[in-house]
């Protein structure tokens, strides 16, 4: 398993904090209300089902996912309970639309929200580290939590990966009783590259 020093751990948390902070600001602009964030949590697991996030494995969630490629690669996800997703879309739309149109727009709207949130996160991290990160087009999935990271294209599962680093931040919109989380998942090679970049960043920053 990967070992991070306290300073490296703290720096990665702060990077995520900056990224998600920017994302929260974007979300707050969109819904016109405060967005509360938890402190980022970093955990290493061999399978997603081992993480605390899979405590309710059969809960159905809506997720927008974007893979990212740069010095390190991985997947970023915005996840929230399916039952609240329409409520979120209603909060986002500043124009009145009939319910059937709202339902039609649900997936489009959530993908665009995911695109804005995840790009805000990754863009901030890229700007701090000075390394470009390319994002794929967002994809949408609605499924049980336990299958959240199953790979649609390969038909396989992330269970085959040796280590996953899960960076998790919860966000809450109290006025609408909506909460969700942002998740970054990387494999061992990318974690090592991120750690190396963080070391360089610290070396430059600390002189």
């Amino acid at each position: 398993m990967i070992e991070l020093t306290e300073l490296e751990h703290d720096t990665i948390s702060e990077l995520i904090n900056i990224g998600v902070g920017r994302a929260a600001s974007s979300l707050s602009e969109m819904v016109d209300q405060p967005v509360e964030l938890t402190v980022p949590a970093i955990s290493f697991v061999e399978r997603f089902s081992d993480s605390e996030l899979a405590n309710a494995p059969t809960e159905v969630v809506s997720a927008v996912s974007q893979s990212f490629h740069g010095p390190f690669t991985g997947e970023a996800m915005l996840v929230f309970p399916e039952v609240r997703s329409l409520e979120l879309v209603r909060s986002l739309l500043k124009v009145d639309v009939p319910l059937d149109t709202l339902t039609d727009l649900e997936q489009e709207a959530l993908m665009e929200v995911g695109n804005i949130i995840l790009n805000a996160c990754l863009g901030s991290i890229s700007n701090v580290l000075g390394e470009p990160i390319n994002c794929s087009m967002p994809t949408f999935r609605k499924r049980e939590t336990r299958a959240l990271l199953d790979d649609d294209t390969a038909g396989g599962s992330t269970a085959t990966n040796p280590v996953l680093m899960i960076l998790h931040v919860q966000f809450m919109l109290r006025q609408n009783d909506i909460d969700g989380y942002v998740l970054f998942v990387m494999d061992l090679e990318s974690i090592q590259m991120l750690r190396e970049l963080v070391r360089r960043f610290l070396a430059n920053s600390l002189g």
Partner: peptide, 9 residues
């Protein structure tokens, strides 16, 4: 008009 706020972009 983009969500991609990277300085390079």
């Amino acid at each position: 008009l983009t969500a991609n706020i990277q300085q390079e972009i």
